[in-house]
C-alpha cells in the first residue's frame, strides 16, 4: 500500500515537472518556431542556483528557489533578445546558438561544482501519517507547488491579456502583429516565463531527486518528445500527454526492473507515432 501511494505521488510529481518544463519549451516553439536547445540547461542551472543559494549563502529554501527562478527568467529575456531575435527565421542558427549556450552552461557548472551529484535539501521536513501509510511532507509540498504552478500558468495563458496574445501569436504570427500585438514583448515574456518555470522545476526535482550537470539534456529530450506527442501547437495536449509520460516513467520501474523500464515509454511512443504520426492533439494537417 505504501508503495502504491509512493508511486502515485511519483506519477503526479514527475508529470507536473515534465509539464512545467515542456510548457516553457512549447511557448517558444509554438509562437516562433524556435527550438530552444538551451532550455534543458536553464532547468539545470536553475536547480544549481537554488542549491547554491541554500547551501552556500544560507538563504531560506523557499526564497532561494524563487530567486533562482527570477534569475533564470532574466536569463530567458537575455536569450530571447540576443540569441533568438537576431536570427528570426534562421532555424539552423537558432539551434546552433542553443547548443552553444547549452555547452557553456554545462561546462560552467561542471567546472565550478564538478560532476558529483548533489541534491537540494528538503524544503519541508517530516511525514504525514494516516493509517498505515506515511508520506513525506517533502513529497506533498513538491506536488502541491507543481500543481499550483500549473494552475497559475494555465490561468495566465487562458485568461490574461498577455497569455491570450501568446495564443494569438501561436496561431497566426502575422495576423497578431498586424492587430497591434508587440511580438517582441510577448516573446520576451514567454521566454522569461518558460525559463522561470524550468528553473523552479529544476529546484524541485533537485530536491526530490538529485542535481547533475547532465540532467538538463535528459529533461530537454523529455520536453521535446512531450511537445511533439502532444501535437505541435497544442498547449492543453501537453497537460494530458505529460501525465501519460510521467505515469509511464513512474510506473514502469515498479513493474519492470532497471533499464528496461526506461526503454518502455519510448517504445510506446514510437509505436504511437508509427500509427498516428500527428500526435495526440496536433492541429497541423
Amino acid at each position: 500500500m505504501e508503495q502504491v501511494v509512493a508511486t502515485l505521488f511519483n506519477v503526479l510529481i514527475l508529470s507536473s515537472m515534465y509539464i512545467l518544463v515542456a510548457l516553457g519549451f512549447a511557448f517558444l516553439f509554438n509562437m516562433l518556431g524556435i527550438l530552444n536547445l538551451a532550455h534543458g540547461a536553464v532547468y539545470m542551472v536553475g536547480g544549481y542556483i537554488g542549491f547554491a543559494l541554500i547551501t552556500s549563502v544560507g538563504i531560506n529554501p523557499w526564497v532561494s528557489i524563487l530567486i533562482a527562478a527570477l534569475i533564470m527568467a532574466a536569463f530567458g529575456v537575455f536569450l530571447e533578445r540576443f540569441c533568438f531575435r537576431p536570427f528570426t527565421g534562421d532555424f539552423n542558427r537558432i539551434v546552433m546558438v542553443g547548443v552553444g549556450i547549452n555547452v557553456v552552461l554545462q561546462t560552467a557548472v561542471n567546472a565550478m561544482l564538478g560532476t558529483k551529484m548533489q541534491a537540494l535539501p528538503s524544503l519541508v521536513d517530516g511525514y504525514l501519517r494516516f493509517g498505515v501509510v506515511s508520506v513525506s511532507y517533502q513529497r506533498i509540498s513538491i506536488f502541491v507547488i507543481g500543481a499550483v504552478l500549473l494552475v497559475l500558468v494555465s490561468w495566465f495563458v487562458r485568461k490574461t491579456k498577455r497569455g491570450q496574445q501568446m495564443q494569438a501569436i501561436s496561431q497566426d504570427i502575422e495576423g497578431a502583429a498586424l492587430s497591434g500585438i508587440s511580438v517582441h514583448r510577448v516573446s520576451a515574456l514567454a521566454c522569461a516565463l518558460g525559463s522561470g518555470l524550468a528553473a523552479l522545476a529544476g529546484c524541485l526535482m533537485g530536491s526530490y531527486l538529485m542535481l547533475s550537470p547532465y540532467m538538463g539534456d535528459l529533461m530537454l529530450i523529455k520536453a521535446l518528445v512531450l511537445v511533439i506527442l502532444a501535437g505541435i501547437g497544442s498547449i492543453g495536449g501537453i497537460f494530458v500527454t505529460g501525465l501519460i509520460l510521467g505515469g509511464l516513467d513512474a510506473v514502469a520501474p515498479v513493474l519492470f526492473s532497471g533499464a528496461v523500464s526506461d526503454a518502455i515509454p519510448y517504445v510506446v511512443v514510437v509505436i504511437v507515432l508509427l500509427i498516428r504520426p500527428r500526435g495526440f492533439f496536433g492541429r497541423e494537417g
Binding site: L224, V225, A263, Y266, V267, V269, V270
Partner: peptide, 11 residues
C-alpha cells in the same frame, strides 16, 4: 519520428 526513434534506440 527520427527523433523518437533515436531516443528509443538509445534506451
Amino acid at each position: 519520428g527520427s527523433l523518437f526513434l533515436g531516443v528509443a534506440i538509445v534506451q
